[in-house]
Design a protein around this nucleic acid. Sequence first.
DNA 1: ATAAGGTTTAACTAATCGGTTAAATTTATT
DNA 2: AATAAATTTAACCGATTAGTTAAACCTTAT
Lengths: 204, 204
Amino acid sequence: MEPKKDSTEEKILEAAKTVFVTKGMEGARMQEIADEAGINKALLHYYFRSKERLFEAIFSNVIQYAFPKLTQIIKTDTTFVVKLEQIIDAYIDLLRKHPYIPGFVLKELNRDPSGLFKLALKHGLNPQVIMDQIEMAMDRGEIVRMDPRHVGLNIVSMCVFPFAVRPIINVLLFKGDEKALEMFYAERANVIKQFVIDAIVIKK
Amino acid sequence: MEPKKDSTEEKILEAAKTVFVTKGMEGARMQEIADEAGINKALLHYYFRSKERLFEAIFSNVIQYAFPKLTQIIKTDTTFVVKLEQIIDAYIDLLRKHPYIPGFVLKELNRDPSGLFKLALKHGLNPQVIMDQIEMAMDRGEIVRMDPRHVGLNIVSMCVFPFAVRPIINVLLFKGDEKALEMFYAERANVIKQFVIDAIVIKK
DNA sequence: ATAAGGTTTAACTAATCGGTTAAATTTATT
DNA sequence: AATAAATTTAACCGATTAGTTAAACCTTAT
């Protein structure tokens, strides 16, 4: 929280983030993090005693990009459609700015699912709030009635999955054309909004 | 292809599949694979010279669960809706039988995306066939007109993503109740079919 | 029986990697 | 200038791991 300037600690955290996110916990090397930060391995251990401690500092910070704060939006006093549009826009924007986060988080949570318990408590991850809002929209007759968990999962799937498989899409659909790929991602917010609305919103 | 009986080679391949899929290429240990196969490390290297060779044998075999043969279904001479239903059913069935494949394939393809080129050639991965079929359904007026890549990606996302994040869903939505989780996955085929049909099929 | 190939045992190499240490050097503080 | 803290250097430790080797042992077909 504290290190504001380009202090050594900040340089380390930035370097560690880069290396951990691209290589993962197991693939990352302390020497590489030190190089990336422009310091040496001894100093790296001088600041963060162990690789595990450093990783946890990074992971706990990065997790907010994967589970963003949606509670402000979802508790707004508007129609479900408006909330839906705002949430999808916000989520896709966030993912476009941090495209490698989904792959990283998936990898690490599959490696050690127990870490999720701590994170759920620490960051107040509570899908129930979202489920409740979906259910209330059904009660108001705004959307068709179905298991809200499936609704939520469908939306998250369409938002996150394309980023988690970015390398695959890049090869299979765009043959390496990063420019076209980025444009494709930019389109997704509107595509998903339209898709979900047509699928579940009741027309009057 | 050849080893039919419970030959040593078959035992090794089975053991390697188990270990690689659960631990990944980096996390897997040759000793553990040898133990799992009930043999020793020397014999393991006697059959498969290196870890990399063994891994490639496994990965090339496992990849068919991730990119199943959909061409037979999609080339059928029926309406798009019927094809859609068959494909989603087949895909969800496959994933329920091999729930850890998505996580594994994602992890490894993110680690080394270059491997995808070989696989695309070797297994004839050709999304264009599917894109063409989607476009033809639009021409026939069966579904609304939109970028077929988004359509395909939406469907695949809703099918695959929930399996890739199985540990997360298990904790966040089911608090470890594997029984309820499995039932939830069983529901998904129908949920996705209904969702997609409502989203893009034109009612007459 | 014997020859060949499959299998085990056990020790070893070479490389990698996280982490430590101690001394020297630089930088900032008083 | 003197002191303390930050940083570098360079060597090292201990553990892990992929892969090798050579000898012995077992199984099986000829």
